[in-house]
Design a binder for these strands. Structure first.
Lengths: 252, 252
DNA sequence: GTTCGACTTTAACAAATGTCTATCTTCGTG
DNA sequence: CACGAAGATAGACATTTGTTAAAGTCGAAC
């Protein structure tokens, strides 16, 4: 990974609520990061049930939230740079899932004492952090919908469309492609199918010209077609300006 | 519905975070409710995309969060008495889903101005409200897991086990049964199956003696067996005392 | 460059689930 | 008490997905 791309590691921090932050708050947020760490192979940063005293900010790469049950691993969420991955670990005594890196991943760690400090002194920033967790919940709901509504094709299309848009929000997507270090097994874990069926699905979508994977990237020649397959509607991602933060609720 | 059962409608309010509230905060919460309303038939209290200026507290009955797409309705969450159903509607300009009543339902409405007031003056209570939304997210993750991991039998078993436990938390479940006003169509919407397959599933589980529906209730003769079918683990519900609230984070 | 392991690909068959059509039951309403 | 609408039940068949077994590909480490 080219660390020189990150002169200030905080550049993307807090992705979709960042636009509502004041300059001072952006600096505060960056100061919350005590240290950074680079993982070059899949690593469980946090294990389910473990007590935690710091939260994780994803700076580059991908992180999955996964739960292993019945010997099989299931992915219940995927994070992109700028996401405060386990801010909720601050409130819940223990996490209900593992936090695992995917491919090469750069993360920052934020001690909980600093979050406590912010909660004591920064009501506006605290609110932004809360709202960021509400967007996570909205993404969860869309995943539930995806799993209830779509078959394997649609689920894969939806996942790719979502990740492309979320990367695009932080300036890390190209018009017809984006980074995609997930393996087929991981894609199947995130789509609730077997790896073999995921392979079938990928093949047929590749043959149909909808999507193609190569060298850690996904190519999407026709985004509109992909989104149609996924019944995709970006509104649940609450892009810039789609929150009340900074407006009526900008309390003080 | 027997309203005399609710001498103080606030009795259950804020279900799983209630134990961390101070008496004064419980009163404050109850004061946040401006008015109550009883719905005797399925009603969409809120429609997706609609601007909202109040949030909904569920006092009795059930409420579903649903999204209609492709002409088919999907349920992405179910609420039980004590839940602050759409607190997140306060932060998000618009909801990404509908809020619909199930069976007979008594709700309280809380104007957003009162939430703003609380956020200005009650940091501890604000934190509790935040944490309540984090539990919602944990439930969402478990639904994702359920949909990825389980077949129709397991999904139904999981839903029944979850609702029984959540009702039990607020003292509204019997040892081997609880209220269950959801129709088979609604159950299928919540489990991501067709109504016909849900009927097949219910029949086979009834014949197996695992579960039975009658007159708006569900009978669960052997909870352990149901939970085994569902690979159920209550920890994601964060029962009493399972949050950091009121302890290290009791800031002031 | 070889070797090993992880990842990907394929085929054949079994099981689960969806679709279509229809009938039966229940319950509120007049 | 009759009626109608919503809900529940049922069977036959199509489609999707899971399972098992195997082989091919690629890249990192020695």
């Amino acid at each position: 990974m080219d660390l020189t791309r990150y002169p200030k590691t905080g550049r993307f921090m807090a992705g979709r609520v960042r636009h509502a932050m004041r300059t001072r708050e952006k600096d505060l947020l960056e100061d919350m990061i005590e240290k950074t760490e680079l993982y070059t192979s899949p690593t469980a940063i946090l294990k389910r049930g473990q007590m935690v005293n710091q939260s994780t900010m994803l700076i580059d790469g991908f992180i999955a939230r996964s739960i292993t049950r019945g010997g099989k691993r299931h992915i219940v969420g995927i994070h992109v740079p700028g996401d405060f991955v386990d801010l909720h670990g601050f409130a819940l005594k223990r996490l209900d899932h593992d936090i695992v890196t995917v491919g090469h991943t750069l993360v920052g760690f934020c001690p909980h004492e600093r979050i406590v400090e912010v909660m004591k002194t920064e009501p506006h920033l605290t609110r932004l952090l809360w709202f960021a967790t509400l967007i996570d919940a909205a993404v969860h709901r869309e995943w539930i919908l995806k799993l209830e509504q779509l078959n394997a094709d649609g689920r894969l299309a939806h996942l790719m469309a979502e990740l492309w848009h979320r990367l695009n929000f932080v300036g890390m997507a190209e018009p017809q492609s984006c980074a995609m270090p997930l393996t087929q097994v991981e894609l199947s874990d995130a789509c609730g199918t077997t790896a073999i069926h995921m392979n079938r699905t990928i093949r047929s979508m590749r043959e149909a010209g909808v999507i193609d994977f190569a060298r850690g990237r996904v190519m999407i020649p026709d985004m509109a077609r992909l989104e149609a397959l996924a019944h995709f509607d970006t509104s649940y991602l609450y892009g810039d300006g789609d929150l009340f933060i900074g407006h009526a609720l900008d309390l003080k």
